[in-house]
Design a protein around this nucleic acid. Structure first.
Length: 561
RNA sequence: GUCCCCGUAGCUCAGUUGGAUAGAGUGUUUGUCUCCGGAACAAAAGGCCACGUGUUCGAAUCACGUCGGGGAUACCA
């Protein structure tokens, strides 16, 4: 709807504003008494040597004959536009009934990498925020017309894995996850904890892990098969969690398969004079003028450091998908790493380097501080989801004592995931957040379950109605108008969310949309009304819109809850 | 030491390229149910937008400084 208004304004105001200008300056006033849109006229004051309010008055004159506007007012230097309600209804309702509402077209090919766990311990709360953001970002971009490939790099080798392996070898007596009846990635993680305990008693234990890594690297049969075994367990466990959470990858990469690659890219860069050889033989990238300092790429002994693998992976992903954009969903503590990565690829002249973007999200902390695995304060992903589902179950049983247990399970899991995902998505993506488990399992107010509830309420009305919809305008009241306008904002919000790569914007919109709906629901009878057909159309538009938004957030809907 | 991010109501957070009277949820107090789902709606109370100085028609938003919190600064991955 905003676009249409901009087009109309531009017809008369092209001497002052380009379409781009209007897009930037046209705003939504803080409250309804000030109109539907407002054009600030301050910037024209100097140019026209008139007071902003006089300018606004003059501009208002030009639109008097336009049927789209009910009235125009000049207030405090703003030109306030009051749209004709009928026109608004016509603009919004039909559009919002379409399954593809808000969709746009784009030729962009985008790779989204996220999650990327180590295989030595199970997924935790931090991974959940990562996955919520990654999955949601992928879906949002898809709705924006991108063709999206979701990828994950598994850090399946290194000392950390050897630590779990070592402790397993020394303490497990050949036990398997099935023997102990625990989820296989948790089983692996338990030996990582065991390692830490042993390390406390015996500081040489770390050296033993390093020796094991050396054995792995030379292909010691016994070590490699132990590694294989433990990784299988880890991956099986991860896959269960991915399924439970509702995410999946189109392409998986494994560090163990690529960690030796990339050296030739560096040597080639050295030959081309892009990198330098230091006196001790190390190859370095001089990023001093970019404020990033010297970055070592190859050690004096010729072995490569971690970032070389990432350089190679960027190259490999481009080989595989020839992407326009490559988004890395990784915590903000790695901002330096990704600045360096992008810069080095640019220096190398890689045409795909400019498309690299670090979607940096904030750390998740607990009310008592950072999660620390050593202190056992890590919130496990599976536990959180299942415990929250148990609480949801209680809530359901309060309302429906005799519900079939498989239905209870289905609903309680959906509610749990909605609660967790929304909680993790609604905080501004780049900001650190405090996750209070007690608050995440709250089902009232600004929460995921509130969104589900609103959707289910709308569905409930529609189930009861056997009347055709009509989208022709009717005399709407304030709460209907508020809902219609809120629905109309979806394309703008989505667009913003795509361009700024901030999924939290959409999460916040979802809540506001549901607030407007619940207000409407309370104020306006639908089935017993003179405007039943029209109100049904409005409810359907809402349901369709929030349905799309929930899907973009990666939240599964419930028709009843 | 240097660099980056953050600081908004008791608590958790919106407020994005500077706009009108700074908004939600929660908690506290109170109201709404003969009516489509009360996991709802409405109201009261709660603010030196960390502090200071600037920039300008206009600052929570931009600049500089101070204080407080977090992170990065590995030839670890």
């Amino acid at each position: 709807m905003k676009n249409e208004i901009i087009q109309i304004l531009h017809k008369e105001l092209s001497e002052y504003f380009t379409l781009e200008d209007l897009k930037r300056v046209l705003e939504t006033p803080p409250n309804d008494e000030m109109g539907d849109f407002a054009l600030p006229c301050f910037s024209l004051a100097k140019q026209l040597r008139k007071s902003p309010n006089l300018i606004a008055q003059d501009l208002a004159e030009r639109f008097k004959s336009y049927p789209e506007f009910a009235s125009l007012q000049a207030v405090g230097g703003y030109l306030n536009l009051f749209l004709e309600p009928e026109w608004i209804i016509n603009q919004v309702l039909d559009e919002a009934l379409k399954p593809e509402y808000g969709k746009s077209v784009s030729k962009t090919k985008t790779v989204v990498e996220y999650c990327s766990p180590n295989t030595n311990k199970p997924l935790h709360l931090g991974h959940l925020r990562n996955m919520a953001i990654g999955e949601s970002t992928a879906r949002i971009l898809k709705h924006g017309g991108h063709s999206v490939v979701k990828t994950c790099i598994f850090n399946d080798r290194g000392v950390h894995i050897c630590k779990s392996m070592l402790a397993y070898q020394d303490f497990a007596n050949g036990q398997k996850p099935s023997d102990k009846g625990i989820k296989s990635d948790h089983f692996v993680g338990d030996y990582y904890v065991k390692f830490a305990q042993q390390f406390k008693k015996d500081s040489s234990y770390e050296d033993q892990a390093l020796q094991m890594l050396e054995q792995w690297e030379v292909g010691n049969q016994e070590v490699v098969s132990l590694w294989q075994q433990m990784n299988d367990w880890a991956f099986n466990g991860f896959n269960e969690t991915f399924k439970l959470f509702g995410t999946s990858f189109d392409k998986e990469y494994y560090e163990s398969k690529i960690f030796k690659n990339g050296k030739e890219i560096i040597l080639d860069g050295l030959e081309r004079g892009i990198f330098k050889k230091r006196a001790d033989g190390a190859v370095i990238a001089d990023l001093e003028k970019d404020g990033l300092g010297d970055k070592v790429l190859l050690r004096p002994n010729g072995t490569s450091v971690y970032i070389v693998q990432d350089i190679y992976l960027a190259y490999l992903k481009n080989q595989d998908f020839s992407y326009d954009k490559s988004i890395y969903v990784v915590g903000n503590e790695q901002e330096y790493h990704f600045s360096v990565l992008k810069k080095i690829l640019q220096l190398l002249g890689a045409e795909y380097a400019d498309g690299i973007e670090h979607l940096s999200y904030g750390m998740v902390e607990l009310p008592e501080g950072k999660m620390k695995s050593r202190e056992g304060t890590v919130v496990d992903a599976d536990d959180l989801i299942l415990n929250t589902a148990d609480l949801a179950k209680e809530e359901i049983l309060k309302r429906y004592e005799n519900m079939d247990s498989s239905e209870v399970d289905k609903r309680s899991l959906a509610i749990s995931l909605a609660a967790i995902k929304y909680q993790l998505l609604k905080t501004e993506t780049s900001k650190n957040m405090i996750f209070n488990p007690k608050e995440a399992i709250r089902f009232e107010g600004d929460t995921g379950p509130y969104l589900l509830y609103s959707y289910a309420r709308a569905s409930s009305i529609l189930r009861k109605a056997n009347i055709e919809l009509k989208t022709n305008p009717w005399p709407v009241n304030a709460s209907e108008m508020r809902l219609i306008k809120k629905i109309s904002k979806f394309p703008e919000v989505l667009n913003d969310s795509i361009h700024k790569l901030i999924p939290s914007m959409l999460a916040n919109y979802a809540y506001e949309l549901c607030q407007s709906f619940n207000h409407f629901f309370h104020e306006c009878p639908v089935l017993k009304s003179d405007y039943t057909e029209q109100r049904l159309a409005l409810v359907t538009s809402f349901r369709n819109t929030i349905g799309i938004v929930l899907n973009l957030l990666g939240i599964d809907k419930l028709e009843e809850m």
